[in-house]
């Protein structure tokens, strides 16, 4: 019977020695999440900017959809991607189920609406300020979107960080489509769930501490970005 003190000591030992097993999990976590956030930004930033800057038929519906999808429970996304990728599903032939790629797909679906909805809000406010000046310049739609995205760069970086924070802490979706297979699809959150239930608290706690540290870093980055944006009146 271990005491809590022993467990904590061992957990920090794992982190400090950068244990192979631990590092493998952390690196896969970061790979999956960063890929998903990059993809989500690639889709969500322009999408959010277009919805934020232009009036078109169906704009209300798109906004409603984005806001709804933003609150989507991760397990539902997991289930959906599972159905698509399973042998019986339309994309089963790709054989992607229980691979990191499947996890990236699930997290991209999870994060894209968040990035798009937050981007829409940021761009809509900015566009309200710029719209007459842009019309006076005679900007094309494409040039407007590009200029808005650039001028909102600080706010949009914090949007991306919010997406990262949500994705890296998420369990349900990656568990369903990744399967938590040792050395293949095991990420920080799924490992914590599994190891805790197995009673292997040292590894779980070590990963928990790292996740907490990551959240700290992300929030510090958001704060620093805000501060420098305000300083340059770019906020």
């Amino acid at each position: 019977m271990f005491s809590l003190g022993d467990i904590m000591a061992e957990a920090f030992g794992l982190i400090l020695t950068w244990d192979r097993n631990l590092s493998e999990i952390v690196i896969l976590s970061l790979r999956v999440t960063l890929s998903a956030v990059a993809l989500a930004c690639l889709i969500g930033l322009p999408l959010g900017a277009v919805v934020g800057a232009f009036r078109f038929p169906g704009r209300g519906v798109v906004t409603l959809l984005l806001n709804t999808l933003m609150g989507l429970p991760p397990v539902v996304v997991g289930l959906f991607v599972y159905l698509m990728l399973s042998n019986a599903g339309p994309l089963g032939i790709l054989g992607l189920l229980y691979t990191p790629t499947a996890m990236i797909v699930a997290q991209t679906i999870l994060v894209t609406p968040i990035v798009a909805a937050l981007t829409k809000q940021v761009i809509e406010d900015l566009h309200g300020e710029y719209t007459e000046q842009f019309a006076s310049f005679g900007l094309t739609a494409r040039a407007r979107v590009a200029a808005l995205l650039w001028d909102a760069r600080y706010s949009l970086l914090t949007v991306a960080l919010a997406g990262f924070g949500r994705a890296v802490a998420e369990v349900g979706a990656v568990l369903i489509v990744g399967g938590n297979i040792n050395h293949v699809t095991r990420v920080m959150t799924t490992t914590i769930a599994l190891e805790t239930s197995k009673g292997n608290l040292q590894l779980a706690l070590a990963l928990g501490v790292l996740l907490l540290g990551l959240a700290l870093v992300v929030n510090a980055a958001v704060m620093a970005l805000r501060a420098s944006a305000v300083r340059a009146a770019y906020a």
Binding site: E132, A152, A233
Partner: peptide, 16 residues
């Protein structure tokens, strides 16, 4: 062409 420009009552400065 459309060679007009306008300076607004409240100048709109880009965040640059």
């Amino acid at each position: 062409g459309r060679a007009q420009a306008m300076v607004f009552q409240r100048p709109v400065m880009l965040r640059r």
